[in-house]
């Protein structure tokens, strides 16, 4: 197992080089000049040209990439073209916010999603099932900026329970993680339900029931564990999405995270920050995928990686 993990970790490097090439060329292919954005609309061409020189934007892209790669291996992601601050500082400042939000909303999503999925599967086509799947549908369909504002209106303005927006205490975390967690919860619920329904039709479940195992034991011990593999896969994907894709929730709740950092940087053509942030999210994705694969073996002992 540990050998497998090591092998997988060694694969991280080529993947990152691939990601960096794609990001590096993509940001340069979109029109727009970082030096112009940085200098502002009033700047003269002379100033813009000077900045272009200082940022090395006049070098050949291949040379630029080579410099970027060399610095990367020294742990230097460069400086933001916009703020002139080190990219690493910008990312380390945004990372805790992203992780807090991702973990909190994942906890909510899992608790809600798995419970409703289970309840629906146990009583398929009952009113419980219809109701929870309807809620799940609403959960997936609701745009986060609308849901977020509605939660703010109710819980901040009228009830005064939670702060409207910002970052700081655990109370700041409640509304954004509910907003973000709900749509993931809906997806997890639907996955749990269909996976459970399939497992509940298996012969070994019938055998367990025939042996006289109480229904509770049948569902939780015999069926649920076997239904978990696709659920864990979906959870892994959702968590990965939360790392870089929470930009709307982050914006609505003024939550400082990687998503906003990245979108702001793309808008300003801040190449070094875009590159750094995308690489960080890519590393996150790779690690989560690895974790999910390791979890498979834990859930289902017949899966072995040796």
């Amino acid at each position: 197992m540990s050998q497998y993990i090591l092998r997988r970790l060694a694969l991280v490097l080529p993947v990152l080089v691939g990601v960096s090439i794609v990001v590096f060329s993509m940001v340069r292919l979109i029109p727009g000049d970082p030096a112009r954005v940085m200098a502002g609309e009033a700047a003269s061409e002379e100033v813009v040209e000077m900045i272009r020189q200082q940022l090395g934007l006049n070098e050949h892209p291949v040379v630029q990439y080579w410099i970027f790669l060399k610095n990367l291996f020294r742990g230097d992601l460069g400086r933001s073209t916009l703020s002139r601050l080190p990219v690493l500082d910008e990312i380390t400042a945004a990372l805790p916010g992203t992780l807090q939000l991702a973990v909190a909303s994942m906890v909510i999503a899992t608790a809600l999603g798995v419970t409703t999925g289970l309840l629906s599967a146990v009583r398929p086509n009952s009113w419980v099932d219809a109701l929870s799947m309807f809620i799940a549908l609403v959960g997936v369909s609701m745009p986060v900026f609308w849901l977020g504002l509605m939660l703010m209106l109710l819980f901040s303005l009228h009830l005064g329970w939670f702060p409207t927006a910002g970052h700081g205490t655990w109370r700041h975390l409640v509304l954004p993680s509910i907003t973000l967690g709900l749509s993931s919860a809906a997806i997890i619920a639907r996955m749990t339900r269909s996976s459970m329904l399939e497992v509940l039709r298996q012969d070994y479940v019938r055998t367990a029931r025939a042996k006289g195992v109480p229904e509770r034991g049948v569902v939780l011990r015999h069926a649920f564990r076997n239904a978990l593999i696709p659920v864990v896969t979906v959870m892994g994907l959702q968590f990965g999405n939360l790392l870089g894709g929470a930009v709307l929730t982050e914006t609505v709740f003024a939550w400082p995270g990687i998503g906003r950092l990245m979108v702001g940087a793309i808008t300003a053509r801040d190449y070094p920050v875009v590159q750094g942030a995308v690489l960080t999210v890519a590393v996150g994705f790779i690690l989560i995928n690895l974790l999910v694969d390791v979890l498979y073996a834990y859930i289902d002992p017949t899966i072995r990686y040796d």
Partner: peptide, 14 residues
């Protein structure tokens, strides 16, 4: 920094 207009207005109301 509160980019969303609605949230910014709610903050001054609360």
């Amino acid at each position: 920094v509160v980019p969303e207009d609605g949230a910014r207005m709610l903050m001054v109301q609360t």
